[in-house]
Write a protein that binds this DNA or RNA. Sequence first.
DNA 1: ACAGCATGTAAATATGGTGTAAATTATGTT
DNA 2: AACATAATTTACACCATATTTACATGCTGT
Lengths: 236, 236
Amino acid sequence: MIDKPIHTILVIDDDEDIVKTIKGNLELDGYSVLFAYDGRSGIDMVREHSPHLILLDLNLPDIDGIKACQFIRRNFDFPIIMLTARDSLSDMILGLECGADDYVVKPFNALELSARIKAVLKRTERSMVKSCYEGQCITIDFKSRTVEVHGKLVSLTKTEYELLELFVNFPSEVLSREFIRQQIWRDSHLYKQSRTVDVHVQRLRKKLEKTSSNQRFIVTVAGVGYKYTDDTSVQT
Amino acid sequence: MIDKPIHTILVIDDDEDIVKTIKGNLELDGYSVLFAYDGRSGIDMVREHSPHLILLDLNLPDIDGIKACQFIRRNFDFPIIMLTARDSLSDMILGLECGADDYVVKPFNALELSARIKAVLKRTERSMVKSCYEGQCITIDFKSRTVEVHGKLVSLTKTEYELLELFVNFPSEVLSREFIRQQIWRDSHLYKQSRTVDVHVQRLRKKLEKTSSNQRFIVTVAGVGYKYTDDTSVQT
DNA sequence: ACAGCATGTAAATATGGTGTAAATTATGTT
DNA sequence: AACATAATTTACACCATATTTACATGCTGT
């Protein structure tokens, strides 16, 4: 909690009410918030302030949100989360082909937005600096998507790998099933009370623990969720 | 992250906005950036600073970009990437007969430019030191474009060779189909969800593995892309 | 013009990852 | 201890993805 960096987030949306509530929420979370009500001035602010992350509405009054997104990506390359109504979800957004890092469907709740922001910041920050993770026993090379446990290579499927990467981004923090579901499956329809997350955690566990002498990397916190740790000393 | 060398890139372009955004992006990528707004002072800077790579606009106010490119190549021999609008794409550029190492079509996005710079630097750096690649089993002579597997010569087609060279430049790094498509086919319209890349990977595989005892050089990472490795020990 | 090879696409096949349901076991509570 | 609730395990059918095959077109060199 000592040296937590302050992140600047730029909100570009023409709905003043939404901007206000987002601003309020984000400031509670400790972010410094800038905002703009249209695309043009939004882009000016991007140029001027170099925010750490941009929340960009898809339906702006003056310019197309997707175009704006592409423009920002092309010219500045800051992480972007698109804000969009469910009925205007295009492939462009779904596949994040417009260059966005993530998207959130309106109306969203504060917690979901907050979670996605956190995840995107973690992801981009990490990839700026390091290309691998080195825990006590587990090593991950993000470029080759290679995972080693005690030096032994283990091959993971796509979801297993993404799951592990997610855990590693939030070390010794309890992640709820719902949070995990949202991060990895977004809104692809998984039955609300499906045990899918559990099953995948189990598959991942099996592969990770096969090598090492029954060490638990992913601990289940009953009634809450799962927690990853690869270190005796707990650190944030 | 320890010994990453700092590269100096010189941008020669008369559009101040473009220069600024390029500069911003490249500095984010960790490059040291110089710039010039016309050909004459650009060439002066080349002489003075010996940059590792030059981004050269085709349409300069004072001199012809192609001429400038040829001049730099003749007199200094630093790698050059041409920046050009789609409508002024000449054969000279397309075939890189002006001596450029690559070209990028405006407007380009930051990621593409970044990728091309990376690729050119890898290529030229490697060829500065070595004119061939020597893996555990595979040997490539870049000048003669010859490939040997376990000492046995295999003849590859143009695309197969370029594919292999691309892979070799990013050892044990997962390359997405989209990235491969961009690097090898540039923007020639390949159907978005065409399996062309796969097919060529398969053809390349067949030729490489025919010789050796069914060793996998190009591993497929399901749902993500392909990864090359010619070494039992995985190294970054 | 012809033969031969390279290339991109499409369709058929194979593979293996994925989600779910149900059975079993563990956990926490009273 | 007994119960209720939650988590794990197993099994399986389905589906998405990768691979293979085949083919039409285009290019090259003789």
